[in-house]
Amino acid sequence: MSAVPLLKVKDVSKFYGSRIGCRNVSFELYPGEVLAVVGESGSGKTTLLSCLSTRLMPSSGMIEYHMRDGLYRDLAHMGEAERRFLMRTDWGFVHQNPAEGLRMTVSAGANVGERLMAVGDRHYGNIRATAGDWLRRVEIEEDRIDDQPRAFSGGMRQRLQIARNLVTAPRLVFMDEPTGGLDVSVQARLLDLVRGLVHDLGLAAIIVTHDLAVARLLSHRMMVMKDGAVIEQGLTDRVLDDPREPYTQLLVSSILQV
């Protein structure tokens, strides 16, 4: 891990009118680090993720990103075009529902290749080879390259969505409940895959989940949110094995131990 943080988040709050989305969230994320944001529904985790990924404008606070040129840029002061460019090159966003992150009516190969074409790749053979390679890496048979995601199972769609996001070698990936809606054995495979990819590529990731097992398996650090605020954060193992806040203790103890 390098010495400077990739993302610096300072006192980020988001209000929906008088309602609180999230408030005074601060943290730093280092390259290669996986941060899990956990909490129950309505605790503000998704709002926070949307603010971080510039899908929502925070009401206050500052989010700075360490650009490839070595400078920190305040996301709120970047132009729309610049932000969009960042999103399709240096960042990835994995939605809970793959249909939101994929183009369901174009082939798997084109889904993976889209980002390459968007950044100016103009060689069909190379794009296709890269797409095929990525399908293999996410354990989709290469002969499915011309099939549409509509013909894929839920787990395959989710893996395709991950491939589509990682093809431009992003440095930061946001994941919103990546295993939601998948059955347990498929979840396990997906988690295994994500863990491998994150490790191999040195990705930094922010994973929003309500599933503590996902946090345990994937993340180095975790933040527990309640009513829009971060109530506890620390190393994942420390938080899960020795929770300090009463709410975290409740959360941890409510998991079925098998």
Binding site: E80, A81, R88, V106, E114, M117, R122, I145, D146
Partner: peptide, 20 residues
């Protein structure tokens, strides 16, 4: 046009080659 996001146009051509 403002954001110069034209990747989708190439996706269409890619699909053409993949299919035909």
């Amino acid at each position: 046009h403002a954001l110069e996001e034209y990747g989708l146009m190439h996706v269409k051509l890619y699909e053409d080659i993949a299919r035909n």
